[in-house]
């Protein structure tokens, strides 16, 4: 059986900007695959190439074995695409929009009618179905957009930043809906710059940075590769710097501690990278106590995907986000502004 999505050596430039330098990845049928990376990493461009919205400069793209470039209609038939920005005609009702969508995918009339009712029920849109979408809230719009993308029962559902702008409750509901879709056999490909989203949702992750895939694997595999556990320690709620420094000197001497960083942004708390072992927290606390230092808070965790990104690129996702703010292209900004007005 061919993979649900195959991307090989994808390249795409916009003028002098290389949005995608070299991306290769394989999405297996039935998995949730996450594309993680900061803004400007090339996630959306990759998705747009896959969904036939942008033609790549070079590379191979396949959906369920069908070539996207040679047979775009087959690819379109198998894909459902949910863009980051919900773009619906506000003069149409939800039902009319779904009917239009059904006709664009050439569903027979009887199938379309049943399927529309089914999707309206599934996404709890029934009472809104005959109201104009101009009156919908953000969460409702996203649900209608989902319903329209799933109407033709795509093999692969592609979602670009599906939970940006949604409240926490809607976000969790979206996660649970995507998990159920997966359970029903739909392959899901999502992009996200939220670590916890990809961590919680994706079976496998590709981390993208500046148009290149840095690493691919299950979240757990990627974390194991970085190695070590993380301990976050607060001596006091707001620790004086000199006290933090002396604690750092004490902890550095412990055999299982690999690295100690004083995090000045968070009240001089201490971030430790340690070799995983059962009594690490206790040992840390005891050695501080022996030196007469209290412990306000202490916790241990596995490395996060952010640590994976940090290890590969030397910067955190947040730093990358902030850095990308200054170098965004004007046309995208203009488009964004127009959408919001």
């Amino acid at each position: 059986m061919p993979p649900a999505v195959l991307i090989e050596n994808l390249k795409k430039s916009y003028g002098s900007v290389q949005a995608v330098k070299d991306v290769s990845l394989t999405v297996e049928a039935g998995e949730i695959f996450g594309l993680l990376g900061p803004n400007g990493a090339g996630k959306t461009t990759t998705i747009r190439c896959l969904c036939t919205l942008t033609s790549p400069d070079s590379g191979k793209l396949e959906v369920g074995g069908a070539s996207v470039l040679e047979n775009p209609r087959a690819a379109r038939q198998r894909l459902g695409y949910i863009a980051q920005e919900v773009a619906l005609d506000k003069m149409l009702t939800g039902r009319e929009l779904l009917q239009l969508q059904a006709d664009l995918y050439h569903l027979p009339k009887a199938v379309a009618k049943d399927r529309i009712n089914q999707m309206l029920g599934l996404l709890d849109l029934k009472e809104w179905a005959d109201k104009k979408t101009g009156t919908y809230s953000g969460g409702l719009l996203k649900r209608l957009d989902l319903a329209s993308g799933l109407l033709h029962q795509p093999d692969v559902l592609v979602l670009d930043e599906p939970t940006v702008g949604l409240d926490i409750e809607s976000r969790f509901a979206m996660w649970s809906f995507l998990r159920q879709l997966k359970a029903a056999g739909t392959t899901v490909l999502i992009t996200s710059h939220y670590l916890e989203e990809v961590d919680a949702l994706a079976d496998r992750v590709a981390i993208l940075d500046r148009g290149v895939v840095i690493d691919v694997g299950t979240p757990s595999e990627l974390k194991d590769k970085v190695g070590g556990d993380r301990i976050t320690l607060r001596i006091r709620e707001f620790t004086p710097p000199e006290e933090a420094e002396s604690a750092k000197d004490i902890l550095k001497t412990l055999p299982f501690v690999q690295e100690v960083i004083v995090n000045t942004a968070q009240g001089n708390s201490l971030n430790l990278v340690v070799t995983p072992q059962t009594d690490a927290l206790l040992t840390v606390q005891q050695s501080l106590k022996a030196a007469g230092l209290p412990t306000f808070g202490i916790s241990q965790s596995r490395p996060s995907l952010d640590d994976v990104y940090l290890a590969a690129t030397g910067r955190t996702l947040l730093d990358a986000e902030l850095a990308s703010v200054g170098v965004r292209d004007l046309k995208a900004e203009q488009k964004q502004a127009m959408k919001n007005s």
Binding site: D114, D124, G139, L166, E169, S176
Partner: peptide
């Protein structure tokens, strides 16, 4: 924001299972 994305009910608990199965068949 009115209404979160409501998680769908499993197909089996729906009273219209047979109906929706027919639809799916179509």
């Amino acid at each position: 924001m009115s209404g979160a994305i409501i998680p769908p009910k499993p197909e089996t608990s729906s009273p219209q299972t047979s109906q929706s199965q027919i639809n799916n068949l179509l």
